[in-house]
Nucleic acid binder design. Structure first.
Lengths: 226, 226
DNA sequence: CGTAATGGTAAAGAGTTGTCAACGCTGTAA
DNA sequence: TTACAGCGTTGACAACTCTTTACCATTACG
């Protein structure tokens, strides 16, 4: 179920869009201003963003530019009002993938959404890279850098790190990790997970003894504090 | 220099577009009907296609559908006339990436073209040659030079290298290579890929034992670090 | 303070990759 | 036709990498 992030300050418009997309089977997140939209663009991991150009404080164009300069490839459709013709070209130049002029028919918007999602299928469902502290992780290239220097992770280590990042903030049990990262149905009682967590810590933590990112939650599991 | 394929039966329109794109620094191929468009879509290796919906014999919609069912991911922009509103949605559903209604401003078309090309960047760019380290690869001539001296690659080796360059940075599994470079549906479990990778390394790498470009990713595959 | 959980280290274990030599195929020349 | 050369493929095996286990030290919690 793809997720759509709607950034729109006009409440009635936002609700209408939300209902429409939910009716079509999408998951929906709504943001009321640019700052919230920017934050949710990474936190809610949407597959597509619908962005009003006219927003209080931070304009949609700024949001768009900011997202692109973060390296996100999230498909973006801009909503413009009639009379903002200039914005069309400008928006596309700033990295939007499409725009549509109010008033518009919902079906037309849907068609554009589907075209974009089809296009980006399998590519940008996840952000291409992720940063925390002085570590940066590039998922497409399977590369990790710490302080600008490349760090070698084994495939398992990388998969573990990726999973933790995708579930940042959540406490993950060893069983869950065994299932998701190791594909083990029933986890045998071993120290495998701990082992790998220790290795990860040594490679990416500043002080592996007092981990800042890969935190142990006693008797439960681990947590990545992104 | 990206190549645009224009499929348009109206000669004056075709010429206008051709001139416009050439002025903007694009290479242009023009087709006058759907059949020619279909053929040139693969033969001319365009980076983007501009497709009139109204064409003699085979409609633009048919061309679009055919191209997609061939598995092409070529970005397509459809040209519709006012009053063909239904075609818009239909066209997008059939796999077009965008449409624009006649009459339109050339700048708006350009903006859409650039947005699409930016989106698909790194995938369908058919650069003529590629350099890395002191190696240079010419795709058109199928020639490879190392330190200025010609290096002989067998056809398979060349195809492998080309594929790796096209997917530079990404880790490619042996299965993927078997499928894309060898056209094997289900890859038998052999050392074929490794063998060829080793040959490539001997021919291209400075120190084949410690490859700088053709890197092994244990348990996953290979990666070209361009 | 005692018990259980976790961290660290090293070595065994399992699986993957690099390399070699041999084989088959295709096209070319004698 | 036969011999030859080049390419692509395959199986064998050694060398290597990553993963797991074992063991003990350390830490957290009731």
């Amino acid at each position: 179920m793809p997720r759509v992030l709607i950034v729109e300050d006009d409440a009635s418009m936002a609700v209408a869009l939300k209902d429409g997309f939910e009716y079509e089977g999408y998951a929906v997140t709504v943001a009321k201003d640019g700052a919230a939209g920017l934050r949710l663009a990474s936190e809610a991991t949407p597959d597509l963003m619908i962005l009003d150009v006219m927003l209080p404080k931070m304009s949609g164009l700024d949001v768009c530019r900011q997202i692109r300069s973060d390296g996100h490839k999230l498909p973006i459709i801009m909503l413009t009002s009639r009379g903002q013709e200039i914005d069309k070209v400008l928006g596309l130049k700033l990295g939007a993938d499409d725009y549509i002029t109010k008033p518009f028919g919902f079906l037309e918007l849907m068609a554009r959404v589907e075209a974009l999602l089809r296009r980006s299928n399998g590519r940008n469902d996840a952000a291409e890279s992720y940063q925390f502290g002085n570590v940066s992780v590039n998922f497409r290239k399977s590369e990790v850098q710490k302080n600008g220097e490349s760090v070698d992770l084994s495939p398992r280590e990388f998969r573990l790190l990726k999973f933790l990042i995708e579930h940042r903030g959540e406490v993950i049990s060893r069983d869950q990790l065994m299932e998701s990262v190791w594909d083990y149905e029933n986890a045998p009682l071993t120290r495998t997970v701990d082992m790998h967590m220790a290795k990860l810590r040594r490679k990416i933590e500043e002080r592996p003894n007092e981990p800042a990112w890969l935190v142990t939650v006693h008797r439960v599991g681990y947590k990545f504090t992104g």
